[in-house]
Design a protein around this nucleic acid. Structure first.
Lengths: 179, 179
DNA sequence: CGTTTATTATATCAATTAGATACTATCAAT
DNA sequence: ATTGATAGTATCTAATTGATATAATAAACG
């Protein structure tokens, strides 16, 4: 494990604009971050506690729940982290490709089934991304985040389209390969 | 954590064609699987031990090292797993997109730097994938795995090209957005 | 208005994973 | 002969996953 708790920067980033409860963070993560930075809910409170202990975040009781907000130390930690240029491409785990890699050990019709399911899943994901793009443009016109958020969702759209094209070509190929 | 040790199926898959030492598995993982199914070296021997205890693999001492081979139970476990159609798309963690998402909190020139670095990394990755594709076609012409391995590397090529296009468009946009 | 379901909010935990580190033996290069 | 690389095996700490648990409040329903 990289001895760098990267999830803490994701939480610091979420708090950069406003204070939030842990549960509100979960909702924001579910609606946006999880498309490109999956965080398990079970990690949020432990990580928040680490951030409070590190003095980068402070929690304020309010109507029976705790709202967390960035401290100055937290803002600097976020800025320092943001400035670092990532030196590595994303780590990826793809079950379909793993199975594809071993697919000579099964009937090719099973392979086609998997590819067809994958096509469905990608199609649904593409719709979601396109809806996100539309709603961002409709409802965030004046947000300083808009430009950057659009960039991330357009990345998702581009990569999902490419995956779909590959998938469809692969299905076609497989169907013709072993008639 | 998903209560399913998915790494064990990757190891079973590697052993489907031939017996291997743990270190040989590491090398095969480094040269192929790690492009779409990252496995930490620290996981290989513990997982092999689990597979031996489960009776799906057996180890044979040979010239001072242990070669592992699939048992009939292991072959059936692999076949059962292969048949299952993945119901979910890949889990992804992308540090660049995470930082992009929060980039309104820093100068846009820093953002351009990251995108440019990302372009370099994707360009290098694309070259690697294209070399893999070429060498597969040159040297595995009669292998029953060839078709499937080509499908996986072509997925990587397609997705990497899409990411590169997005990256270049994003750089262009950022440079023109805030002159 | 009482009951049921959903949401909000917080927490814990076992299993898995990541990646570093350690050790030994043999082989290749100098 | 010495040094560095490879082959081979192993352990460990920290982080993560995703399930599960609990409780309070709000919304929906009969």
């Amino acid at each position: 494990m990289a001895k760098q708790n990267r999830t803490r920067f994701a939480l610091l980033g979420l708090l950069a604009s406003e204070s939030l409860t842990g549960y509100e963070m979960k909702k924001k993560i579910d609606g946006s971050l999880n498309h490109f930075w999956k965080i398990s809910f079970g990690q949020i409170y432990p990580t928040l506690n680490v951030l409070v202990e590190a003095g980068e975040v402070e929690g304020e009781e309010e109507n029976g729940s705790t709202r967390y907000k960035l401290t100055e130390a937290g803002r600097m930690a976020l800025t320092d982290w943001l400035r670092q240029v990532p030196e590595e491409l994303p780590v990826q785990k793809n079950e379909l490709l793993l199975k594809l890699f071993f697919s000579r050990h099964e009937d090719h019709r099973e392979t086609i089934k998997k590819l067809e399911k994958h096509e469905q899943l990608l199609t649904a994901r593409l719709k979601v991304y396109q809806q996100i793009e539309s709603s961002l443009m409709e409802s965030c016109g004046s947000s300083p985040d808009l430009t950057y958020w659009l960039l991330t969702v357009r990345h998702g759209i581009a990569v999902t389209k490419a995956g779909l094209d590959w998938c469809r070509q692969s299905i076609t190929f497989m169907k013709e390969w072993k008639r």
